[in-house]
Design a protein around this nucleic acid. Structure first.
Length: 347
DNA sequence: AAGTCGGGGTT
DNA sequence: AACCCAGACTT
């Protein structure tokens, strides 16, 4: 039996029932695919339902405020996905007369839609013959063919991309694409794959050569950097001073409290000596609210401290990214996890 | 080709 | 602590 036949047979028995598999609506599939980029199915599922309910079609999405979309996206991470979705939805209104495209090339032009997502939407919605290549497919192919080229190298991407297209079942691209991803996710897992009962085992090169736990090979990235954030809770007349993060750094455009970053951890005495502190807050003395919180991201470890700061409003500098919000409005702002968690138990 | 962009689960 | 997740984009 061929590779794709075995994958499809396995899929017929083990497929997951996922809500976005019930539709061929490219808008709904796009919604699910963007949400699922680098995101587990279980984590993305509630967001998928929330977005579909709030924006039932691409026109509703395009006409929404970006701030509202970001708030709905809150907690999911990689927030540029939400901003790109808004741009993409507007592009669909203007260039495609509000009819969501299904052809690979048009999809590829949408912000936030890369080769994987274009292949996914075009195949799932219209059964177009484009092979998906995500983390699952990389793993299945690397192991089955015993390819030791790193999957995140330039040459590796070319090799696997070509191979994925060759293996695609062109008679049923949509079904095959779903099948190989489920196979990678449930059967050919990163750790402890179920080789004991695997339809590919008889000619799996990695199994044959004992490389299952080595493949796929990957070039290691840089080590995480440590950053130290000091947040200041400044309240006046039932309103809290919030700051909107700039672009070009983590959590672009999201809201948080005014803060100062330092190269190393500081105690209060060292903090108030910082030039930046004195420039913004003068001789005010911060009162630490709780202990240090460690917030781990893929590429940086953030150590945060929160302080209450009593200061006369007239002594604060005016900054375009600083604004007061009454407590009731605080919930409507899109905040990153570090801040939303704090707000949840503090206010 | 390498770096950046989140949050959470698994091992 | 390391790795990974229905990746895309910038430098």
């Amino acid at each position: 039996m061929s590779f794709s036949e075995r994958i499809l047979n396995w899929y017929a028995e083990h497929k997951r029932a996922l809500p976005w598999r019930e539709t061929k609506n490219p808008y709904v599939i796009w919604l699910s695919e963007i949400i699922l980029q680098q995101t587990r199915v279980e984590q993305g599922m509630p967001y998928f339902f929330r977005f579909l309910e709030t924006y039932p079609n691409v026109t509703k999405f395009a006409n929404a405020e970006e701030a509202e979309i970001l708030r709905l996206w809150q907690g999911l991470g990689y927030y540029s996905r939400a901003r790109n979705m808004h741009k993409a939805s507007k592009q669909v209104l203007e260039l495609h007369n509000a009819k969501f495209p299904t052809d690979y090339q048009s999809l590829l032009k949408l912000p936030g839609v890369g080769e994987y997502t274009a292949a996914a939407i075009s195949s799932f919605s219209s059964n177009h013959a484009h092979a998906v290549l995500d983390g699952n497919v990389f793993r299945v192919l690397a192991r089955y063919f015993g390819i030791e080229e790193p999957i995140n190298s330039s040459s590796g991407k070319k090799i696997f991309s070509k191979l994925a297209e060759e293996m695609l079942d062109r008679n049923q691209p949509a079904e095959y694409n779903q099948a190989i991803m489920d196979f990678g996710s449930l059967q050919c897992k990163p750790k402890n794959p179920n080789c004991a009962e695997c339809v590919l085992r008889i000619d799996c090169r990695a199994y044959e050569s004992g490389l299952v736990n080595v493949l796929p090979a990957k070039i290691k990235g840089k080590k995480s950097k440590d950053r130290f954030f000091h947040y200041f809770i400044i309240e006046h007349d039932g309103a809290v001073l919030m700051s909107q993060r700039s672009e070009g750094d983590v959590w672009a455009n999201l809201f948080e409290f005014p803060m100062i970053e330092s190269d190393a951890d500081l105690n209060v005495a060292e903090l108030v000596q910082m030039e930046e502190f004195q420039k913004d807050f003068g001789l005010s003395v911060p009162t630490q609210i709780k202990g240090q919180i460690k917030h781990i991201l893929s590429h940086q470890n953030i150590y945060a401290r929160f302080y209450k700061l009593e200061i006369n409003a007239s002594k604060l500098p005016k900054k375009s990214h600083w604004n007061y919000f009454i407590l009731e409005k605080l919930d409507t702002l899109a905040k990153h996890k570090l801040i939303s968690s704090f707000v949840e138990h503090y206010f």
